[in-house]
Amino acid sequence: MTRRSGPPDRSRGAVLAEAGRTLAGHRDLVPQAVSLPVDALEQAGRDADVPHAALVELAALHTDRPALAARTARTLGQRVRAARGAEAGDPEVLLGVVARPAGTGDLAEGLFAAELTVACGRRTGWTGPWRTQLRMLRRHPCGDVRDVAYGQFTAAE
């Protein structure tokens, strides 16, 4: 799939999300299905509710698929780290997005929140809210989520 640059296109995001739902209906196509909602998340704009709902829906596709959840989480983090300018998103909106799934106790949601927190924390120079978010993830009930959070340093010593 080719990524387009430019302002978010909500109709494109909706089409990608719907295509992902259709593919997810076929058990053997779930790995391909999850890549489409990841692309749709990038089209979310400035409203935290839209990407949060997309993130929860995406996490649901990873039930009983921890390896796929880890790969998808890394992809999310890489996309955020690679984004530039308006494409990078508003850090305050992204903080609102990651704070909610971080507290659910769900493995996939926690991994997504952890990778997004690391990506955004680095981008913002680990401002206070992002350090707080990272500390919360270090207390997550899932060990893999805690591992991602503890694997990140916020300051050089």
Rank of each mutant, 00 (worst) to 15 (best):
A83R: 13
R100C: 01
V97K: 02
E92H: 02
L68N: 01
G105D: 00
R100V: 13
G45V: 07
H52Y: 14
P51G: 07
G85C: 05
A82T: 09
A69I: 00
G105I: 00
A69W: 07
E115L: 03
P51S: 04
A69E: 03
A44Q: 02
T63Y: 12
P91M: 01
P101R: 09
A40W: 03
R71G: 15
H62T: 07
L55V: 15
T75V: 13
E87P: 02
A119V: 10
R81M: 08
T117N: 02
R84S: 10
T117I: 01
R123T: 06
D106N: 15
C120H: 10
D47S: 08
C120N: 13
G110V: 10
A60W: 09
G45D: 04
H62G: 15
E57W: 14
D106Q: 10
D90N: 12
Q43C: 05
G85K: 04
L116P: 04
F112S: 07
G45S: 10
P66R: 04
T63G: 13
C120Q: 15
V118A: 15
D90I: 01
F112N: 09
H62A: 12
D47P: 02
R74V: 14
A82M: 03
L76K: 01
V50R: 15
H62S: 08
R84F: 00
G105V: 00
V38C: 01
P101A: 00
A102G: 15
R122H: 14
P37M: 08
E109P: 04
P37W: 03
E57F: 13
A48E: 11
E42T: 13
Q78V: 06
V56S: 11
V56P: 00
R65N: 06
V38P: 03
L95G: 11
V98R: 05
A119F: 07
A82D: 14
D39C: 00
A59F: 12
G121K: 09
A119E: 04
A88N: 04
D39V: 06
G77V: 07
L94H: 12
R81A: 15
E115H: 15
T104H: 01
R123Y: 12
R123Q: 13
V38S: 02
V80M: 13
A119H: 11
V118S: 11
T72K: 04
A82Y: 01
L107V: 06
V98S: 00
A59V: 09
A69R: 06
H52Q: 12
E92W: 00
R122S: 08
